[in-house]
């Protein structure tokens, strides 16, 4: 019994610490080659993107199709900071600030979108986010200062594996805290029945705006990591195709699940990278990869709409107080308190 409590309390932090050590040691020791390291970083970035989109499309049941736009804002804002604003000697130290600024900029854009879209009915969000994604792309293509269609470059390779790891852990932690809070329950109630939610005191407008801004912020963070990995970004990296990839990862892993987001992003990234090698080997055009993601989406919708996890969650992602044993214990306490209350009155 004691042993179980120890692992419940310290198991996750311990594993996280070992993970961090590995994320620093593995690339440095040469145990994994640069390609594997790159794939691992992509997995991390995609996990952040998937969680971001899952909050809106999965947990809340709204439909955003333009999250690549928020990623673009995060990528460009953080790159402008590290290339133009921060002194070169300090860019390594100031990198987290650049990421944060990229996230905040994306979050503000999310606020600008959320206000008008959530004023009216839900279906508007898909149209508005689609338009937003396209507008961001054309604005970036026409901003000559940022390189226009040629793109923006000059970033140092600041996205190390351990930075990706740290940000992923932080994002999962924050998303978990959000989901298992009064706000997170509000989000779920909106998905279930929005009118009923407002009639049991949920401020649905507030919850929707908060969730959307938080989601946009996370996509912005991912954009910053992405930009400082590639060291070169252009508007074509953030088209509707990128948004489609995110949709596939969300529905592959399962809506309304953080564990599902992690799995979906991992499986999708590995499959797409594997496909790259296979196509190369068979001497088939890489263009075919563009067919695979939408095809996967269609097949998923047909045969397994709930994804891998489908509303379920890994135990280690559920806060201690929310786990079954804790609820049972709380139930007994509540029951005793009620009996005492009855005796007193």
């Amino acid at each position: 019994m004691m042993k179980k409590t120890f692992w419940d309390r310290w198991g996750t932090p311990l594993i996280l610490l070992i993970g961090f050590a590995l994320s620093m040691a593995l690339p440095a020791s040469g145990l994994i080659n640069p390609y594997i390291e790159l794939v691992l970083k992509y997995i991390g970035i995609n996990i952040i993107l998937t969680i971001s989109l899952n909050l809106v499309n999965g947990y809340m049941g709204e439909f955003s199709v333009g999250h690549a736009g928020f990623m673009a804002i995060g990528a460009y804002v953080s790159s402008i900071l590290t290339v133009w604003v921060f002194p070169a000697a300090w860019e390594g130290v100031l990198f987290p600030l650049a990421l944060l600024a990229g996230g905040i900029a994306a979050g503000l854009a999310g606020l600008g979108i959320a206000f008008p879209s959530f004023k009216t009915r839900g279906d508007y969000l898909a149209i508005v986010t689609l338009a937003f994604n396209m507008i961001i792309k054309s604005v970036l293509e026409n901003l000559e200062v940022l390189g226009g269609p040629r793109g923006f470059m000059g970033m140092s390779k600041l996205t190390t594996l351990w930075w990706v790891y740290l940000v992923v852990v932080l994002v999962v932690y924050l998303a978990r805290n959000f989901v298992y809070s009064s706000f997170g329950r509000g989000v779920l109630s909106i998905r279930e029945d929005e009118t009923a939610a407002s009639l049991v005191s949920v401020n649905t407008r507030q919850v929707k705006v908060l969730t959307f801004v938080f989601s946009a912020f996370l996509a912005g963070l991912a954009g910053g990591l992405f930009a400082h990995e590639l060291q070169f970004i252009n508007p074509r990296s953030f088209t509707i195709l990128k948004s489609t990839d995110m949709l596939v990862m969300v529905y592959l892993g399962g809506i309304g699940s953080l564990g599902g987001s992690i799995l979906g992003a991992t499986v999708f990234t590995v499959v797409m990278e594997g496909l790259r090698s296979v196509l190369q080997l068979l001497n088939i055009s890489q263009e075919w990869r563009l067919v695979v993601a939408p095809l996967m989406l269609i097949l998923l919708m047909l045969f397994r709409p709930q994804g891998i996890m489908g509303l379920r969650e890994f135990r280690f992602l559920i806060p201690l107080q929310e786990r079954s044993e804790a609820i049972q214990k709380a139930r007994e306490t509540a029951r005793t308190q009620r009996r005492i209350g009855e005796v007193r009155s």
């Binding site: 805290n177 009064s182 329950r185 509000g186 279930e192 029945d193 009923a196 939610a197 049991v200 005191s201």
Partner: peptide
């Protein structure tokens, strides 16, 4: 809220009487 637990159904109705900010939650 059909898919949600019985407990969550009741807890959601506590929304307006739950006093913490989004930062305190995160």
């Amino acid at each position: 809220f059909k898919e949600l637990s019985v407990l969550d159904n009741v807890r959601i109705a506590h929304y307006a009487r739950t006093h913490y900010s989004i930062w305190e939650a995160l």
